[in-house]
Design a protein around this nucleic acid. Structure first.
Lengths: 250, 250
DNA sequence: CTTCTTTTGTTCAAAAATAAACAATTTCAA
DNA sequence: TTGAAATTGTTTATTTTTGAACAAAAGAAG
């Protein structure tokens, strides 16, 4: 019994029975509990089952025809705080740019029920908003598998065709001395393209990223209009940014 | 026993049994496990079987394992038959268009391991190929929530920028009298845009759709070059199409 | 709040499968 | 027939998977 077959049987069993325990599965598959657990970890990561203590449960929304992975779970509370602030600035009828940052992704649940248009290059964002009242415009071009997003020349041209009220973008590093820095050239240029076409650009930035620098410098602080960060940002750092003329929300 | 015969027997065995182990195959074919592995590598590269550790599985078993309520799963066997034929026409390095038809979707598992580029407007196709060796180009524009795909003017312009070796498109209805018909204007115009930019256009069409007509006429039979259907198509119908000058694979 | 039980994660060793290297065999053309 | 190329089998090394043992974490019970 190989891995693929086991996975198939586990999902099938969970679907049929609603929930199942590790022990039962180990017996059913003639394998050890350890192996079952390892399988369940993978299946849960793919969103195919809900992992419970001692077993797994049927996931309610398996009806989704497609699904993309999102690794936005770290620092969830602070990111949600940021997104709540961001969501409050949004008006009915707005056209928004949203890039592929992990903080930006968490904005989705806050805007599900708004009557707005979102232009995005992030596949998880599309998946999240496709069954919502938001109308979605997807940026076209080459798919970057690592980042689950669309990047590149064609993508930038696509963005350049639109004009939006607001752009919500993420960043890997920001510092007063160096400005905005990133780990990837591709993400950086998409962010710049969006900022260029937006009336107001919001930088969603977890407090831990303030005053950090990554390897690629791509834009000065003037790229964005408003910096939104969380309430754990050090007050002296926030003050320094304000002194430097940056509008900060937190 | 040469490679051609072995290949035929392996595919046949996998189809019959759903999954099979290297050991069994080695016995069955009176050959070494090493040879079986080498064969399986080739067959998997062609998408004819799904390689697992220790053996191989039927492609559809993998596709359907986690998609119980998927529309693509109806008439799965015939659709897979069509897709297998389609997959065999694909060469290394090809650029393909794939539209958002449910039959076209099932082509994905057959091409996972090929070194090709796929340009598509279908979100499920992107999700299916994003973790594969296929490089994906996503058509940009307005997201059609019902069809889980991108359609519209911008999408068509995007398609018009590319040139591909092959286009694989689906259709709602086809008849000798009326040509190609569809249920949706949007899907139809995307299909036309792709066909226009492809060297060879393949129409993937379940036999039950032959000689049916939907409400919107959108193109003559000359839009495509090759019609691929399944082996349950009525011989007299297939003959009639051939008489009319259509190239049919089945 | 502490203690006890259960579950989980981690590490490690064994087993299985695969890939690589090389030798033997077959095939094909000249 | 002979030599070169392709295919196959065997041996060996590498990788992956698995199960067991044990420590850590999470609930449950008192």
């Amino acid at each position: 019994m190989n891995f693929q077959n086991r996975k198939r049987l586990i999902v099938q069993t969970v679907e049929e029975r609603g929930s199942v325990e590790v022990q039962e599965l180990a017996e059913l598959l003639h394998t050890s509990e350890m192996t079952v657990r390892r399988d369940l970890v993978q299946l849960a990561a793919q969103g195919l089952v809900y992992r419970t203590r001692g077993g797994a449960m049927k996931v309610s929304a398996v009806t989704d025809a497609f699904r993309f992975e999102n690794k936005a779970a770290v620092n969830a509370d602070q990111k949600d705080y940021i997104c709540q602030l961001a969501a409050q600035t949004i008006q009915e009828g707005d056209i928004l740019f949203m890039d592929c940052g992990s903080t930006v992704f968490r904005l989705c649940p806050f805007i599900r029920n708004r009557r707005i248009t979102v232009i995005t290059n992030s596949l998880p964002v599309v998946a999240e908003l496709i069954n919502s009242s938001v109308s979605v415009n997807l940026v076209g071009g080459e798919v970057d598998k690592d980042r689950q997003a669309v990047h590149g020349l064609i993508a930038e041209e696509h963005i350049a065709r639109y004009r939006a009220n607001r752009a919500f973008i993420g960043v890997d590093g920001i510092s007063l001395r160096k400005g905005l820095t990133a780990n990837s050239e591709r993400e950086a240029s998409t962010a710049v393209a969006m900022a260029r076409q937006a009336e107001t650009t919001y930088l969603l930035c977890h407090s831990a990223k303030l005053e950090t620098e990554k390897y690629l410098y791509f834009a000065p602080l003037t790229l964005f209009d408003i910096l939104i960060t969380d309430n754990e940002a050090r007050p002296d750092v926030v003050d320094a940014y304000r002194q430097a003329g940056v509008t900060v929300m937190n």
